[in-house]
Design a binder for these strands. Structure first.
Lengths: 214, 214
DNA sequence: TCTATGTTGGACGCACCAGTCCAATTAAGG
DNA sequence: CCTTAATTGGACTGGTGCGTCCAACATAGA
């Protein structure tokens, strides 16, 4: 009775949600079989329908759960920008690397992939994710940039635009190098991606007079 | 006998290819019915199988055709960078706007969407598109940047990285504002996106001494 | 121990869809 | 005009997968 056998109902719900997102994220909504999901969750198919009633409801629930996880992970990555002290370049490289880690995470890619793939059938997923995750992360980043600009450590007038461009500088090159998430990126690769993005970002928005580093 | 009725065999093949990509791009490969494709092409289902034999072959053929169109459109957009004369900022804004037009095109979004969505079933699509389109466009852009750098009009050492970052600055903000291609962007929106990207790009890589504009 | 609720495996109905087949029609080319 | 090849509509098959049902089983709480 280590842990494998039936431990309780609530655990099964979790297991089903995780398995559903894993399978659907891997094979797509249409291709994902409920039988496969049930098997991967270690659960009978009837149990799946007991909990969620519908393949569509199951998909929505699992997607929402993962989007939630992605959001909290991203916000946690931004947390290092809370204190305005320390070397600016190091600070930005650190937050950049953390954001890229979130961005390159398997789950994060699956969310974006499903968002694009199933948007025809489930247009509301985009509302949830965009206004609940993307916009929220962007606003938080913009707030941090605004504080840094006010403190004279960044030279910019539109913090929201700067936040958009910062993420663009981060993710653009990485999208290509990972071939849209199909190829892993090493730890050094992540660090390099963050460093290059911050390099350019600071060349554009760094304090005008003296750069933090020669 | 204006044009609607059967005009020839070769036209039907085109019509089938276009209809196939339209339907599959809209509904996804699994959801797209061959009957629907045939109807949209104004053709009997048997004709589809006469030409392509297989739903999978039909998909590959239609995808390849569209990828080809996307590639030529992108390369055409880069053509304006051929002459190194003229105001640098105007030049870059022009090419940026053209690239964004390509990027925001319905077909271009459909290609990227299918690339992500069906990558599980068709991993080779990514090879074709990545090495045949994305890499080719990036290399061309990097070549132009290298020439501009050599002419002292850009201040950069790694043209390939600059090309990655230029496209990141262009597409990152636009991805968000169009909600991943689900919402149209006005002509002014495109121009603004290009202008902002070029602003930041030139702040980072513009000629060090004197900016082209105050 | 008894009971209620959740779980299991498996079988089943049902709908949908890729791909085939065929007889009738149409267009192309010599 | 005649032959050849392509097209058409429609019926048909086989396979797959969602969702249901049910009888037996496990578990938690009284």
């Amino acid at each position: 009775m280590e842990a494998t056998a039936a431990r309780g109902r609530i655990d099964k719900r979790r297991a089903i949600l995780d398995a559903a997102f894993a399978v659907i994220g891997r094979e797509g909504y249409a291709q994902a079989g409920v039988d496969v999901i049930a098997a991967e969750a270690g659960v009978a198919k009837a149990t799946v329908y007991n909990h969620f009633g519908d393949k569509e409801a199951l998909f929505r629930a699992s997607f929402a759960a993962q989007a939630e996880r992605v959001l909290t992970a991203n916000l946690a990555a931004l947390e290092v920008l809370a204190d305005t002290g320390g070397d600016l370049r190091d600070l930005l490289e650190d937050v950049g690397r953390r954001l890229l880690e979130c961005y390159c995470d398997e789950r994060s890619w699956a969310v974006r992939r499903l968002l694009l793939a199933e948007h025809g059938q489930f247009p509301d997923l985009l509302d949830v994710t965009q206004s609940g995750v993307a916009d929220r992360v962007l606003q938080t980043l913009a707030d941090r940039f605004a504080r840094l600009a006010l403190a004279g450590r960044l030279n910019l007038t539109d913090p929201e635009l700067a936040a958009e461009q910062f993420t663009g500088l981060l993710t653009g090159p990485v999208d290509r190098r990972t071939r849209f998430g199909t190829r892993p990126l090493s730890e050094d690769g992540l660090r390099a991606g963050a460093r290059e993005a911050v390099d350019t970002f600071l060349r554009a928005f760094g304090p005008s007079g003296a750069p933090d580093r020669p």
